[in-house]
Each structure stands twice: as structure tokens, then as C-alpha cells.
């Protein structure tokens, strides 16, 4: 009897002890992962990559490449940007300048306010600017260099592909947006330079405001005017989707030769659906990497000055059958 009582009491005691200690351990343990305060970061270069279209796969890849490179080099990099809103985008640039980052890598925007920011304000604060993917001429933006595809070359490539697919005879519609951005001009001139040598190929260059309805309207108008059109090239990749929608509404898409670039929101999807016959594929990750690398080289004084003409990344033609 006495032994049983002692046993029960002992068991009770041990159980209580156990639960108390487990509970106390939980209550007093403090393994919260608080961010470590740091001074080492002070010496790192602070870079900002600013783009207009944060959500786009193309720009995401650019960001990834840049971040990878920055991490390798021990620089801190943040990717800022807007979701297709120019005002926001410009504001971000201004904030970047005001926060005195060491370098700005930016998607070129061929507008006055952009140029004003880079040329005047960034230069005033002595902050180097590198344009990436979309260039703005050096003389207008005071950029240190450009990293990205040779857009002129890309235009030529797409035109060559077109001729190869369509033959040396036909009507081609070049659809660009109304901003007349530098990279688009380059692409157009590349295309036109190729097609010039084919007198039987008629090119129709059209510009459209970049709202969806207007793109559709412009496309409809163009097709009305040129019912015998054979090919479309969306110079601005963002226009491709709406354009295709209108084309598809009119007739089958298959007979048309439709080309675009990979830096549009829907480019990859359209390609996979087979709606595009060909697409220029650029190397966004390389762009990110090289731009960060160049920026750091410039900041460290390893390569001064940087190549004005830019560091070109690889481009290749992606045909519909490759994508499928």
C-alpha cells in the first residue's frame, strides 16, 4: 500500500516535472531569428535595377541575373520598378538618385523626362547609369554604357526569317507603338534595311497608342486598308497579343506570318500556342549579369571608360516549331 502510494506520487512528480520543464523551455527559449545588425553592408556598393515591367518574365530574368551577379560580387542590389506605369518608373529613378545609390541600371525609356533625370539629375549627383535591354542613345541620356541585344541586328534577323518563310514577295505590316522609342526605331530600321533589298516586299509601318482598344482598332484599320497582307511584325512585343486577337477575329491565323520579340508580357505564351511564327529570343539573364558586372567594374575603376557602344548579348531566332 505504502509502496503503491509512493510510486504513484513519484510518477505524478516526474510527470509534472517533465511537463513543467517542457513548457518552461518553450516559454524561455528565445531562438527568434532577428536580423543581425550590420556595419559591413556600409562598404558594399548599392545598386538599383529599375524596370518598367516588373511582372514580365523577361524582366524577372534580367533581375535574377543581376541579383546573382551582385551576390557573387558582394554588392547589394535591389530591383525596383513599376508595373507598366511610366510615372511610377520615373519616380523610382528619382528616388534612386535621391537615395544616392552607387549605380543605377535602368531599362531605357526614350522620353524627355527620363533623359532629363539621367542627364541632369543623375549626372549632378555623380551617379552612373547603365541602360539595359532597351537603349537610349548616349548623347541623350549620358548613360555609361548599354547592355542588351543589338536591336538593329534583331530587326535584321527577324526580317531575314520573314523573307525565308514568306518568300521575296508580299506585304508586311510593322506595328510599333507611338512612343517611338530608340530600341523600336532600331528594330524597324534593321527590318527595313533587310527588306529594302527585296523590292517585291512591301512594308507598311504603323504606329499605335498602346491601349488595348487602340491596338485592336489600328490593326483592324490596317487590315482593312491592306486586305492582302501576308505578315505581321510586332516591333513592340507588348502589342502582339491584342494584334493577334484582332487578326484571329478576322480569319485564321495560320496563313499569316507573324513575328515578334520576347520582351512582351504574353510573348512566350503566344509562342507556345503557336500563334507566333517566330520570335527573337534575347538573353535577359546575361543582360542582368553583365550590367551589374560592368557597373561594378566602372565603380571600382577597373574598366574606365566603359564601351560607349554597349555590351551586346546574344540573340537568336526562335521559330514556332522550336517552341512547341
Amino acid at each position: 500500500m505504502r509502496k503503491t502510494v509512493i510510486g504513484i506520487l513519484g510518477l505524478l512528480c516526474i510527470t509534472l516535472c517533465y511537463f513543467t520543464f517542457v513548457s518552461a523551455e518553450k516559454a524561455f527559449r528565445s531562438d527568434w531569428k532577428l536580423p543581425q545588425p550590420t556595419d559591413a553592408m556600409q562598404s558594399q556598393y548599392r545598386l538599383v535595377l529599375i524596370t518598367q515591367e516588373l511582372e514580365m518574365p523577361f524582366w524577372k530574368k534580367v533581375g535574377e541575373g543581376a541579383e546573382k551577379q551582385a551576390q557573387q560580387e558582394g554588392a547589394s542590389l535591389e530591383v525596383w520598378g513599376s508595373y507598366g506605369n511610366q510615372e511610377d518608373f520615373l519616380k523610382k529613378i528619382e528616388i534612386a538618385i535621391d537615395t544616392k545609390v552607387d549605380g543605377i541600371i535602368v531599362q531605357g525609356l526614350d522620353t524627355e523626362s527620363f533623359k532629363n533625370l539621367t542627364k541632369v539629375k543623375a549626372a549632378f549627383h555623380g551617379i552612373p547609369v547603365i541602360t539595359v535591354a532597351n537603349d537610349v542613345p548616349m548623347s541623350e541620356s549620358l548613360r555609361r554604357t548599354y547592355v542588351g541585344s543589338d536591336q538593329y541586328q534583331a530587326g535584321k534577323m527577324i526580317a531575314n526569317q520573314l523573307v525565308q518563310d514568306m518568300g521575296t514577295e508580299g506585304t508586311v505590316i510593322l506595328l510599333a507603338d507611338a512612343h517611338q522609342e530608340y530600341y523600336q526605331k532600331q528594330r524597324v530600321s534593321g527590318i527595313q534595311d533587310v527588306l529594302k533589298s527585296y523590292p517585291n516586299v512591301r512594308t507598311e509601318y504603323a504606329e499605335t497608342p498602346d491601349t488595348r482598344e487602340q491596338i485592336i482598332a489600328t490593326t483592324r484599320d490596317l487590315m482593312n486598308r491592306l486586305p492582302d497582307v501576308d505578315a505581321f511584325i510586332a516591333v513592340n512585343a507588348d502589342l502582339a497579343e491584342a494584334m493577334l486577337l484582332e487578326v484571329g477575329r478576322r480569319s485564321q491565323i495560320e496563313p499569316y506570318h507573324i513575328y515578334s520579340f520576347d520582351d512582351g508580357r504574353e510573348s512566350l505564351r503566344l509562342m507556345q500556342q503557336g500563334k507566333l511564327d517566330g520570335m527573337i529570343e534575347q538573353s535577359p539573364e546575361m543582360m542582368g549579369q553583365i550590367s551589374v558586372d560592368m557597373m561594378l567594374q566602372w565603380l571600382r575603376g577597373e574598366t574606365v571608360p566603359l564601351d560607349m557602344n554597349g555590351y551586346l548579348t546574344e540573340i537568336r531566332m526562335l521559330k514556332a516549331m522550336d517552341a512547341q
Partner: peptide, 16 residues
């Protein structure tokens, strides 16, 4: 207040 997580932001902030 700077720490690993917000070093960039805080630096930007102070610079601002």
C-alpha cells in the same frame, strides 16, 4: 536600426 534585412533600405532612407 540597420540590420541585414533592411540595410539597403535604411541606407537609402538616410541618404534620402
Amino acid at each position: 536600426l540597420q540590420n541585414v534585412e533592411n540595410a539597403f533600405a535604411i541606407t537609402s532612407y538616410t541618404n534620402l
